[in-house]
């Protein structure tokens, strides 16, 4: 059986490295399971796209999920890895993404 072609790893960037106007999805987060559950309940899970409204300059990172704006402290936003989206017209990518953030131990938990 011929070898399957290896797909390149999707680009992953910390939330703080995105630019204003970028659309992205959450890929992973080095945060506790409790914080993960809060983010998921606030609507920020791996099934949704968000738009970056403000980032950098020492202030909070502001993103928009649907019509809701969420502000994240830069320290917290730095721990959230994102996957830039190539389908700018969609808000939810439920088909291509798992139902929720991974429930296994995060990088921080493992450390």
């Amino acid at each position: 059986m011929p070898d399957q072609p290896t797909l390149p790893d999707p680009i992953r960037l910390p939330l703080t490295q995105l630019k204003r106007g970028d659309r992205a999805m959450v890929a992973d987060a080095s945060i506790s399971a409790e914080d993960r559950a809060i983010l998921r309940a606030m609507g920020l899970d791996e099934t949704c796209q968000f738009t970056v409204c403000r980032v950098g300059s020492g202030g909070p990172c502001i993103i928009q999920v649907d019509a809701t704006r969420l502000g994240l402290s830069p320290e917290f936003a730095r721990r959230i890895m994102t996957r830039p989206c190539e389908c700018p017209d969609a808000t939810h990518c439920a088909v291509t993404a798992p139902e929720s953030l991974p429930s296994g131990p995060s990088a921080t938990d493992r450390a």
Partner: peptide, 12 residues
């Protein structure tokens, strides 16, 4: 102990 992360909904 663990504090709630500084994530807030910004109302319109």
């Amino acid at each position: 102990g663990h504090s709630r992360p500084m994530v807030l909904e910004l109302p319109p």
